[in-house]
Amino acid sequence: MNSVVNHLIGLLKLERISDTQFIGLSQDIGFPKLFGGQVVGQGLSAATQTVEGRFPHSLHCYFLRPGDSAHPIKYDVEVVRDGGSFSLRRVLASQFGKTILSMTVSFQVKEEGLDHQDAMPNVPGPESFKSELSLYREHANEIPEKVRDLFISDRPIEYRIVENQNPFRPRPGIAKRHMWIRSVAPLPDDPLIHQSMLAYTTDYGFIETALMPHGISIGNPRLKIASLDHAIWFHRPFRLDEWLLYVADSPSASAARGFARGQIFNRKGQLVASTAQEGLLRFADNPKK
C-alpha cells in the first residue's frame, strides 16, 4: 500500500486507552496548527469505535481552538443515547487540558425507505484534468520557500479540480467548484476507513470556495482563514479509492465569515454525502488596497 495512504489510515485508527477514551497522533504537514480535517476524521473514528451494528449518518462539529501539530490529541467520547434505531455520541478533542473540537455523531441501523436525490452535475471525468499536486509543482517557483515543500510533497488524496487555473493567481468567478477526489492507493474493505478518510478530505479546500468571487488566493499574506464549524451527512455507501465528485458552492460571505456547502457523488451519479461549513475570512487590511 502507498506509504502516505498507510500513514493516514494509521493516523485515523487511534490508540484506545479505555472504553470511551482514545489518543490520536498529530500530523505535521508543515504548519504549526493542526489540519482541521484530521481532527474531524479522528473524532469520527473515536465515536464509531464505541458503537456496534450501526453506521454514522451525520456529524456536526465546532472548532474551538487551533490544535498543535507537534502533540497528540485526546478524544473523550460520551455515550449520550442508544435508542431502538439511532445512537448519539458526543466527542471532545483536547490538548493540554483544553478542548479544541466539540463533535456530535449520530448513528443508525440499516433501514430501507424513500429514495430520491439531486442529479449529478454534467462535468468531464477526472481523466480530463491534471491533479492539483501537479499544478503546484508546475508553479513551485511562485510558492514561498518556507512552505514550498508542503505544497509539492506527496499526499494521500488526489484532487483534480475542474475549474483549473493557476492556484496562486486566481481570477474572479462564480463561487462554485467541482473537484474529483480519490485516495492515491486502494483501501481496505472497512467502511469506517472510507468514512473517516472522507471526513478528513472534506475540510480540504472547502471554505476556499468563498474566495472565488473575489479572485483571492489562499496564499494571500493578509488573509487569515480558519474553519469554524463543519457538518457531514452520509447518505449512501461509497469507496474513497474510487473517484468521487465533490461539488462545492458558497452562497454567502459576510461579517468576516464565509459559508460553503457541498455534495459528493460517485461515478454512477449517486449522491453519497453532503457537507456544510462556515469559516473565518479575515484580512489584516482592506484586500482591495
Rank of each mutant, 00 (worst) to 15 (best):
K224N: 14
P144W: 06
P221G: 06
E145R: 10
I157R: 04
E163A: 00
I218H: 13
R160K: 09
G258W: 02
G205H: 08
G219A: 09
I207R: 01
L228I: 14
V247C: 13
P191D: 04
T201S: 11
F238K: 02
H214M: 06
S183V: 02
R261C: 02
A256G: 13
R257L: 08
V184R: 15
K176A: 07
V184K: 11
R182Q: 13
H214F: 14
G205C: 13
R171Y: 01
P186G: 07
M212A: 10
E208S: 15
I157L: 11
V184A: 12
F168Q: 03
E138T: 03
I161D: 00
G258Q: 04
S227C: 09
I152Q: 04
H235K: 14
I264W: 06
E242G: 11
D149Q: 12
F234H: 03
I174A: 14
S254L: 11
R236A: 09
Q270G: 05
L198A: 01
T209K: 06
M179N: 15
I181E: 07
A256Q: 13
E158T: 15
A253D: 01
L245H: 01
Q270N: 14
A256P: 08
S250R: 03
D190W: 07
A210N: 09
P167N: 05
S250P: 07
P170I: 06
R182P: 12
E242R: 15
K146R: 15
P213I: 03
V184S: 13
G219D: 06
H230F: 11
D190S: 04
A248L: 11
I218D: 09
L244W: 11
I216A: 02
Y159C: 11
A248K: 01
R148V: 11
A199I: 03
H230Q: 10
G215V: 01
A185C: 12
V162H: 10
M197C: 02
Y246R: 05
G219Q: 10
S217E: 07
Y204G: 08
Y159A: 13
E138L: 05
G269V: 02
K176P: 00
K146Q: 12
Q277T: 09
P170M: 09
